[in-house]
Design a binder for these strands. Structure first.
Length: 286
DNA sequence: CACTTGACCTGTCCGC
DNA sequence: TGCGGACAGGTCAAGT
């Protein structure tokens, strides 16, 4: 699903393709998916593209910002003015025709069109002043991101986590503790660190926490390297409508019943934690 | 207050 | 085959 690496991939592509482009108009197809005044983006140049955890931010002229949250099935797809989209991806809803039945917002540019698609309508686009967007409660409460945490931040977060009663996996997915980590990378980082996802936080040692933070960084960076994950249920596509490749490197996610990649005899088990599918190796994750 | 569960949606897949 | 139910998972709100 769109987690930090998926949004980072789109952010990099968007910055490259559309910095300096002008938004001619914003068409809202699904009002539920949109907040703010569409007109406030009209005829404004894209100044910068940023990311905060899983939120994509597009700064435009006049101190205005568009924020995108993909939640589970969001996609932002760009079609250049004279480029014909061919093909698509077998696991995605994007089959080459845009707008698709799941297109919720259309951003018309001077050099093409951006389509915000979202099958399940959990995601949203919000337009507001840069100030308004930065004051959104969700953004203000975000914890640090594992890919850029300083040693001080790691130590601080460890202190905080040690007091938590929830299992470690639920805690590392709490965006107010650390941000950007979703189900796929949480599962894989815990496997890398050799920690069972249902371990109580009080049971973990400082070295284990430190190892876990290193592994979170490792899998997130790998996710970015492979352009995100596009699995059977993941509707993620990049800016150009292509899938990512991290799914070819899943350690545990979606591998129930399959052999552990690290130890002899381990079979990946699936349990539910915090209402979410959780995968681990019962042999080598203690 | 801290933590857990359910709701939000829609499409797919599984079992009867 | 057909259909109902479970499941997918990011975040918020309601419940314990």
């Amino acid at each position: 699903m769109p987690e930090l690496p998926e949004i980072e991939t789109v952010k990099l592509q968007l910055g490259k393709a559309l910095t300096g482009a002008t938004i001619k108009s914003v068409q809202v197809i699904s009002p539920k998916s949109f907040m703010g005044k569409a007109a406030s983006a009209k005829n404004k140049k894209i100044v910068a593209v940023r990311r905060m955890a899983k939120v994509l931010l597009m700064d435009i002229e006049g101190e205005v910002t568009l924020a995108f949250h993909f939640k589970m099935t969001g996609q932002l797809i760009y079609v250049g003015k004279n480029i014909r989209i061919v093909g698509g991806h077998p696991t995605a809803d994007f089959t080459g025709k845009l707008p698709s039945p799941h297109t919720r917002v259309i951003i018309n540019l001077n050099k093409g069109t951006l389509f915000f698609n979202d099958q399940r309508r959990f995601g949203w686009v919000k337009v507001g002043t840069k100030e308004e967007i930065s004051r959104m409660k969700f953004l203000q409460n975000l914890g640090p991101e594992p890919i850029s945490m300083t040693v001080n931040q790691v130590n601080k977060v460890i202190k905080l986590i040690k007091l938590k009663k929830s299992p470690i996996k639920v805690v590392i997915m709490d965006q107010e503790i650390i941000s950007g980590v979703g189900n796929i990378y949480a599962n894989d980082a815990l496997w890398e660190a050799g920690i069972r996802p249902d371990t109580g936080c009080a049971m973990l040692s400082i070295p284990q926490f430190k190892l876990l933070f290193e592994k979170l960084k490792l899998v997130l960076k790998e996710g970015i390297k492979y352009g995100g994950a596009t699995a059977a249920d993941a509707k993620y596509l990049d800016l150009h409508g292509a899938g990512g490749h991290y799914q070819d490197h899943f350690r545990t996610y979606d591998r129930k019943g399959e052999k552990c990649l690290r130890c002899d005899g381990g079979i990946i088990k699936k349990i539910t934690l915090g209402g979410r599918g959780t995968y681990y190796c019962p042999v080598c994750q203690k």
